[in-house]
Design a protein around this nucleic acid. Structure first.
Lengths: 188, 188
DNA sequence: CGCCGAGTTGAACTGAATCAAGAAACGTGG
DNA sequence: CCACGTTTCTTGATTCAGTTCAACTCGGCG
């Protein structure tokens, strides 16, 4: 809970009273690994702050999965597309490790948006941040090779390479597990 | 000007008084084709609504360019990453055809955010929309082949294929002009 | 007319997919 | 704590989509 407060203070300078409104809506939840926060086709109804754990986003395909994102402790996670549009999610949000979350519902968040001074500001900033992340990723996917993407990931998130099954990482950088296994062999 | 007003009315239900505040900041600009709205390394200071024209976003590379986006009349365009963060742009925004724009400066927009009821709401919605676009594109890049991406583009934007040089489209879907030329030959 | 950028076509090459099989790691129940 | 099955990772052989380099065509424009 403290971590989440610090997040809002440093990022938005949330006031104590606004924090009261917001934090009163938060609901703690513990999940085992491989738990789904959101199933395919379900409408996302929550925004979740990760206190502990790692979460994976993926699209189920016939006889395998397309992993396109990881989210770590100290960040928000959601099937954000579905959350914004309130339409069925096209992907699954699932824990990789045991996880502790603080969740707020869509309805409660709309209330925060309208009843606090910085509600819409926070919403705007959050969207902007998510946009920036996706924008960077687009350029990475278009302009770097699979090997370069792997090395970059390795630099930025060494713990990811240690903690997360290779096949998920392969999918994330856009190649097969076999291809990644070979890249890994080549560069060590 | 009317088009832009309709855009805001249908999309956000902007009130007449808020529209007054907003539209008073807008500044009309005409540009010839191949004009740069924003240069590499420049900080984006405008958000622009396209009345007429087509605009291309690209990253200059040693001896060529990586085109990663097109924007058409009836939509907003900006080096949005740079605009949000107010840091130098990593890409170029350039007209493909002769173009008419309505522009608002960063400073003026911040004023709209704070002085109108729906300022931050509009900012949030705009970011959300941009996020959704990027999110869709990420999945397309990861899960479809170049040929599939081309066909999809062809369905969604036939006018793009007619109006825009093939080499830009090739770059956009992530292959060389030669490869696209062959795909095109194969499927017709 | 001649030039230049855009598009096409060909041939050789390459990174990654696919198919297939075996090795290592992991978890669960006895 | 071991034995077993399952999942994950590795390795090999083949195939394929797309790159690269190069030559040639076409249309517009100075």
């Amino acid at each position: 809970m403290e971590e989440i407060r610090r997040y809002f203070e440093t990022k938005f300078g949330i006031s104590p009273t606004d924090w009261e409104v917001f934090s009163s809506k938060l609901c703690r939840q513990e999940l085992q690994k491989k738990s789904k926060l959101i199933h395919l086709g379900q409408v996302e109804n929550h925004l979740s702050f990760i206190e502990t754990g790692i979460i994976r986003l993926y699209v189920p395909k016939k006889d395998d999965e397309l992993t396109f994102g990881f989210v770590f402790n100290g960040a928000f996670v959601s099937a954000y597309d579905s959350f914004i549009t309130q339409t069925p999610s096209e992907y699954v949000v699932e824990t990789i490790t045991d996880t502790i979350l603080w969740r707020i519902s869509h309805k409660d968040l709309q209330e925060v948006y309208s009843s606090t001074k910085i509600g819409n500001l926070i919403g705007r900033k959050a969207s902007e941040e998510l946009y920036l992340k996706k924008s960077k990723r687009e350029l990475t996917l278009l302009s770097h090779t699979a090997e370069e993407r792997y090395l970059k990931l390795f630099e930025e998130r060494p713990e990811l390479i240690r903690k997360i099954p290779l096949k998920y990482i392969a999918s994330y950088i856009g190649i097969t597990p076999q291809a990644l296994s070979r890249i890994r062999k080549r560069i060590t």
